[in-house]
Each structure stands twice: as C-alpha cells, then as structure tokens.
Design a binder for these strands. Structure first.
Length: 259
DNA sequence: ATGACTCTTCATAAGAGA
C-alpha cells in the first residue's frame, strides 16, 4: 500500500500535475495540504475518475486539507475536536479517516509567522490539541499515522543552514518540544530517503533559486505509531515533482507499507 | 551575464507562505 503526503499549494493550480502524479506514482492514499479552494469548488470529479474518493476540510482562500483514497474512506473526522480558534474561528487544517487497514490524519500545522506573534502561540496550542486528539490511536494496535506539513524542522539537520533561521520560526525549542510531545504519545518519525543529496528536504522556497541550490527544509513529516512504523517497506521524497514549471514549493513524501 | 516566487481574491495590490 502506497501512502503519501503533499502540500500542493492550491489544488486548483496543481490539478494537472496532481492527477498525473497520482497515476504515475500509483499512490493509494494521498494526504493533501493547502488546497486553497472552497469545499464547493473542490475537484471531486476528476479525482473520482481516477478512482479516488475524497474527504475535504476546506473553506476558501487559505489553508484546506484533504484525504484522497482508493483504499476506502470511512469514519471521517473533520477538524481537530476541541482545537484552538484563530481570529474567532477554527481553520481547516486537519482531517482524519480510516483508509482500509490504516487510520490517517492529513494536517497543515499553522505557520506561526514570527516568534511572539499570536499565530506562533496558536501554532503551539494547535500542536497540543493534535497530540490530545491522536493519543488514543497512537497507542493502539491498528497502523496509524499523522502525515502533513508540520511547519517545524525537527532538528538543525532538517534545514539547509541553521544560521539562516536564527530568530525565525520552524526551528525554535518550543516548536520542537511540541513535536517531541506528539512523538511521546507513541509516534515515531518515519524518515524518508532523499533521491539526491544527503538530506531528505521536502520544501524549497520559490525565491532566490532555492531548489537549484538545495536550500531546503524537512517540514513535511510522517509520524506513525509502532504498528505503522513496523510495516514501512520504504519511504522517500519525490523531489522530481518539485522540478519544472507549475511545481508546488513542496515535494511529496511517499511511504510504502506492507499491509 | 542575466535576474532572481507563487498563490488567491469582495482583484489589478495585498496577504500569506516559511
């Protein structure tokens, strides 16, 4: 079973590449982030024609997550129960479902913007709510994973140059501690192989030739419980999908499971 | 040597991304 996570940076803008990639990669379940379109405008039909059911949590211009599955899609949970509000409401950043033998969450963790910004505190509270929400499944016997854009680089090795991030979000102790608390609920970091260079970056800024210079970050993560992690055959970052015109700034992370 | 981001929308500038 092939599972993947991909921040597509607009599912509308990415649709041709998304459809082509789903077919060429043979992905059974894709966790999508940053759909950036209203649920009413979600491209259900072309995905259905490829054999995918879709569960969507999206409201419009910002954020938005989805699960696309050829392996079943049941027990859908839209949003984090009891999750924090930002600017007076919950944002569409999480969706969970059971896809055949596995239970999965597709998550888009808040960016945080700047240290001390209200969005940074919101990010920390959001990660705590995620930990609470998944604790029971994380400790369970069924293969379970949280996949998505976590907007945190777990270690200094996960950014191209730690000094370039001094004073910025994504690398701070508090963010990393929040991630560590999530792992402590029974999840481990499924580390993908890089297909080029030494580190499996998943995001490269569009600006200043970030991708050609490999100025990347590993912020798209797969956190699986023990039954999930034990079933992993292979995992890699498909950096080919970051190439060329019309690419997202994130590459898909692909996980092959023996289930 | 050059030029140096992309996406969306109560759009033609601004916010967000990281």
């Amino acid at each position: 079973m092939r599972i993947a996570t991909w921040n597509v940076n607009s599912i509308t803008a990415r649709l041709p590449r998304l459809l082509a990639w789903l077919e060429s990669s043979g992905t059974d379940v894709l966790c999508v982030q940053e759909t950036k379109c209203a649920e009413s405008a979600f491209p259900y039909e072309p995905l259905r024609e490829l054999g995918y059911e879709a569960a969507v949590n999206a409201t419009g211009r910002w954020n938005g997550v989805a699960l696309l599955s050829k392996a079943g899609l049941t027990d859908i949970t839209v949003g984090l129960p009891g999750g924090p509000d930002y600017d007076g409401g919950q944002e569409p950043r999480a969706i969970g479902a059971t896809c055949g033998p596995v239970r999965l969450w597709s998550v888009y963790v808040p960016n945080g913007r700047e240290i001390g910004h209200p969005h940074y505190d919101y990010k920390l509270r959001w990660l705590e709510a995620l930990r609470t929400t998944v604790a029971q499944d994380a400790a369970g016997e069924r293969p379970f994973a949280v996949l998505g854009d976590f907007n945190v680089a777990p270690t200094d090795e996960d950014v191209w140059d730690r000094a370039a991030f001094d004073g910025l979000t994504h690398v701070t102790d508090l963010e990393r501690e929040a991630l560590a608390a999530l792992r402590d609920s029974g999840l481990s970091d499924v580390m993908p192989r890089p297909l080029k260079y030494d580190r499996p970056f998943t995001y490269w800024d569009y600006r200043e030739l970030g991708f050609p210079k490999n100025r990347g970050m590993r912020i798209d993560l797969v956190y699986g419980n023990e039954p999930f992690a034990k079933s992993v055959d292979d995992a890699y970052v498909d950096r080919e999908e970051r190439k060329g015109k019309g690419a997202s700034d994130h590459a898909p992370v692909v996980v092959d499971l023996e289930v």
